[in-house]
Design a protein around this nucleic acid. Structure first.
Length: 844
RNA sequence: GGGUGUGUAGCUCAGCUGGUUAGAGCGCUACAUUGACAUUGUAGAGGUCAGAGGUUCGAGUCCUCUCAUACCCACCA
């Protein structure tokens, strides 16, 4: 097994490329990604990895998710919990099929020429290939997931789960077949769920057509060929006389019989106030037809072409038919008027092809129907799970969005006519009997010798991913894993799939297992480019996470994704930002390098070392303060805040102050090593590679399974005393710089301070590079904090500084004279204000 | 049409339940530098907290309105 190199003197700069793969290997071989190998007394902590589509490459959105998930998993593992992060991939039916079809198109063929089985073989080959890529990329991110439990939505076991879910729902009457208007993508040759439809704003033409004695306005004239009704508002005086009449209409010779009816839904003021109703190609019109008993005529087929019912326009595409019909209407003088109309064009979310609403027989999940024996519908189950507080959504505002969506949910169309997906477990006998069964064999038992045909359709890809948290743990078997690890702890995902996925997981888990799929939903925002634009291939502003890892290292990329982004808020990523965190990682490396090179022996310090000086007390106090704050932040999903704090401690406290003082005071081996050890544990969830690489120098096992430290009590006065020292040093340096005294010059200086004793004044003088005088100089002293300083400078406080201070003092004085302030403000605030005033006056 | 965010230094963003002279990183300016680190150090400049009202002893923080901007949902023929 390749051991990470143990260098006696570490390289001057951290080189991620030399370490990352080796470290990952070390972790993987240690077996600790698998919770079964972690201490048995730990409570399970479980994250189901949102399965990336098995179509190729990882983008920054995935990278961000992985960074958060790994952060949580590593933190909980360090805290002693049995952390399970279950990885996997999604077969992503439409997305994958579309991808492979594009490849076939380049080869000059298509799926119909290949045939179903050959085509599916091609897809399988393609998927196997890209799954390997994805796995590699997930590892590159440092993800500590349990590969021994990796799953794929198309695994045999998961397909069993899909069939089981379908059958159970069918038996409960929650899945039914019905003829309804569906969203049809003529290119994908499939239905789409309502939320798979996107809208593109466009300026459409609104055509006014003479329609017998009426005038009708429409954006889709070609559909008028299958009109069977005209809807008007019941209170529209213009049309009152027509209501109830049956009209014979000729559209440039194409004969229609239409019934005029009144409905409140019709807006008198839009267009002409009269709507031609096409029941087979509009959801609203279909409802009209059911309500008012209209005939339904299909006009457009699955390829978007006109059927024989369209008469002479038969065989044309809808757009061709539109053009031809408009021309004919113009000739016959029936095209009365044209207007521009802003509206939205519905398109397929995968291929952006305009959607054709069609009447079609499909399978649906009934969301409003009561579940037998439970007195609740699926919709109500999903609503309750969040409303009751059992599932917490972060940030909270997304709960509102969730409720709104659930409340407006319609029956879910789950059948797809594409080939790549789980076949619907429904069989038909020759005489049309429907048999729902998990396999052909089982179906045959019920068929009593009749020949069977399986439904040609496949299931919506979200149907299988809705089962993900438990199908991956063995359901419908009652496995140990399912008992132990479900419900999972956190679902971490992007807010863009809250409806597609999060809501459906809740529905399915509640229905099938009577429990929630997870306790907390943590939603991250979208990663955008420097200008806040969506990253996309077509614009070419996308950043490839793997490129960034090559350039800056994984740890730097992870930090740049974690720090500075709030849950649910979009964030921007660009190279300078990542470079900044690369610098931080290098800083951490060099801090360690310094400590290792300066101590007599590199060893683990188990006991809290004794502080000998104020600086020692201070750094230990700061560290325990940090541990407390970070633990609180991480327990409450404030990842960015925790990251900022460790960054600040490492660079601004440890490196800039403590190490500099350690160089002067000396004899601090145990404290330096102790602080470093804790620091490595605290940084590990953020920057796993560099922290582990450094830890390996101790030769004491694997950092990944070390113990997260407990915050100890600390004396806060130590921190304020030390800040006295810090302020003194900074002020002296400032005085020197402002007075153009070279850093190499040491001006004479006498200091009086009530808090700091002489040894600390000497320390301050060394840090500030001044020469400590033994007696007061013959000068006016300056007041800095609680110090009085006699220093040999040509200049004192600048005019601007003086002005600012005077203004500040005036403000405080006014406040202290204000009766209502004195009467209303709490005593401690008044005390504070008085103190501030004294200090400020002292300075002047 | 309905809803939800966001607007704080040149840029990217913190600022929790209202109470130090509003912070950080990058960038900028000046200076420094062979011993952990130039992927560095020290110091500095830079903000009427989008605007207008209001509540309060006190508002970046709470309320109302306006403007700008992003996204989500619904879709009208």
């Amino acid at each position: 097994m390749p051991e990470p190199e143990k260098l006696s003197v570490m390289d001057k700069a951290y080189d991620p490329k030399q370490c990352e793969d080796r470290i990952y290997d070390l972790w993987e071989k240690s077996g600790f990604f698998n919770p079964d190998n972690l201490p048995k007394d730990g409570q399970p902590f479980v994250i189901s990895m949102p399965p990336p589509n098995a179509t190729g490459v990882l983008h920054l959105g995935h990278a961000a998710g992985l960074a958060y998930e790994d952060l949580m998993i590593r933190y909980q593992r360090l805290k002693g919990r049995q952390a399970l992060w279950l990885p996997g991939t999604d077969h992503a039916s439409i997305a994958t099929q579309t991808k492979v079809e594009k490849i076939l198109a380049k080869e000059g063929t298509d799926r119909h020429r290949l045939g179903r089985e050959k085509f599916l073989d091609r897809v399988r080959e393609f998927v196997a290939n890209s799954q390997g890529n994805i796995r590699r990329q997930i590892k590159k991110m440092g993800s500590s997931c349990d590969w021994s439990r990796e799953r794929y939505t198309f695994d045999d076991a998961l397909s069993v789960a899909v069939n089981q879910a379908f059958i159970q729902m069918y038996q409960d009457g929650l899945i039914y077949q019905g003829e309804r208007i569906v969203n049809w993508c003529p290119r994908c040759q499939s239905t789409l769920a309502d939320d798979e439809v996107e809208y593109q704003p466009q300026i459409a033409q609104l055509y006014y057509i003479q329609y017998g004695s009426l005038l009708v306005a429409t954006t889709r004239p070609e559909t008028k060929l299958a009109d069977t009704g005209v809807a008007v508002n019941p209170y529209d005086k213009r049309y009152k006389a027509y209501i109830g009449q049956e009209l014979e209409v000729s559209l440039a010779g194409h004969k229609l019989k239409v019934k005029v009816f009144a409905d409140k839904e019709v807006d008198k003021d839009f267009g002409s106030g009269a709507i031609g109703v096409t029941p087979a190609h509009s959801a609203i019109d279909h409802n009209f037809a059911l309500k008012h008993g209209l005939e339904i005529i299909k006009l457009i087929d699955e390829e978007g072409k006109i059927l024989p019912s369209g008469g002479q326009y038969q065989g044309l595409t809808t757009l061709e038919a539109r053009a031809a019909l408009l021309k004919d209407l113009e000739k016959s003088g029936q095209l009365v008027k044209l207007e521009d109309l802003e509206n939205n064009l519905s398109v397929c979310y995968r291929c952006q092809t305009p959607i054709e609403p069609l009447l079609s027989k499909q399978w649906f999940v009934a969301v409003d129907k009561k579940i037998p024996g439970r007195n609740q519908s699926l919709k109500e189950l999903a609503f309750q799970a969040v409303k009751s507080g059992q599932i917490k959504i972060l940030p909270e505002r997304f709960a509102k969005i969730y409720f709104h969506w659930i409340n407006n949910l319609h029956d879910w169309c789950i059948s797809r006519q594409i080939w790549w997906g789980h076949r619907i477990p429904v069989y038909y006998t020759e005489n049309g009997k429907v048999i729902v069964a998990a396999s052909l064999e089982q179906a045959q038992k019920q068929a009593k010798g009749q020949k069977l045909t399986q439904d040609q359709d496949t299931l919506d890809t979200w149907f299988s991913s809705a089962l993900w948290t438990f199908s991956t743990l063995g359901w419908p078997q009652e496995t140990q894993d399912l008992k132990k690890f479900h419900p999972t702890s956190v679902m971490e995902t992007g807010y863009d799939i809250i409806f597609f996925w999060v809501a459906r997981m809740i529905i399915m888990s509640q229905y099938l297992l009577k429990e929630n799929p997870f306790e907390t939903v943590y939603l991250h925002g979208m990663v955008r480019d420097k200008d806040g634009k969506k990253m996309s291939k077509s614009i070419g502003n996308g950043i490839d996470p793997i490129d960034m890892i090559e350039k800056f290292g994984t740890d730097a990329l992870r930090l740049s994704l974690i720090i500075g982004s709030a849950p649910g808020a979009d964030s921007r990523l660009y190279e300078e930002k990542i470079a900044g965190y690369r610098n931080f990682v290098n800083k951490l490396w060099n801090i360690s390098r310094y400590i290792f090179s300066s101590v007599k022996k590199v060893e683990i310090i188990k006991k809290t070392p004794t502080a000998k000086t104020l600086a020692d007390q201070w750094i230990l106090a700061e560290m325990h303060k940090l541990i407390g704050q970070m633990t609180d932040d991480l327990d409450n999903f404030r990842f960015s805040s925790a990251g900022e704090k460790i960054y600040d401690f490492t660079w601004n406290k440890l490196a800039d102050w403590y190490l500099e003082i350690a160089k002067i005071e000396g004899d601090k081996d145990d404290i330096l090593l102790y602080i470093l050890q804790k620091l490595l544990i605290l940084t590990h969830p953020f920057t796993p590679f560099v922290s582990e690489q450094i830890w390996q120098q101790f030769d004491q096992g694997i950092l990944m399974v070390a113990s997260w430290p407990l915050a100890q009590d600390f004396d806060a006065t130590v921190i304020s005393d030390f800040s006295e020292l810090r302020e003194l040093v900074v002020s002296l340096r400032n005085l020197k710089a402002e007075n153009k005294i070279l850093p190499t010059d040491f001006p004479d200086c006498y200091i009086e301070n009530s808090v700091l004793d002489k040894s600390y004044l000497e320390l301050a003088a060394r840090l500030a590079r001044v020469k400590l005088a033994t007696a007061k100089l013959d000068l006016e002293p300056l007041a800095i904090g609680s110090s009085r300083i006699w220093i040999n400078l040509k200049k004192d406080m600048s005019a601007k500084e003086k002005q600012d201070l005077q203004k500040y003092i005036k403000g405080l004085e006014a406040q202290l004279k204000n009766r209502s302030f004195l009467d209303n403000a709490p005593a401690e605030i008044i005390e504070q204000t008085k103190k501030k005033l004294q200090e400020a006056q002292g300075k002047l």
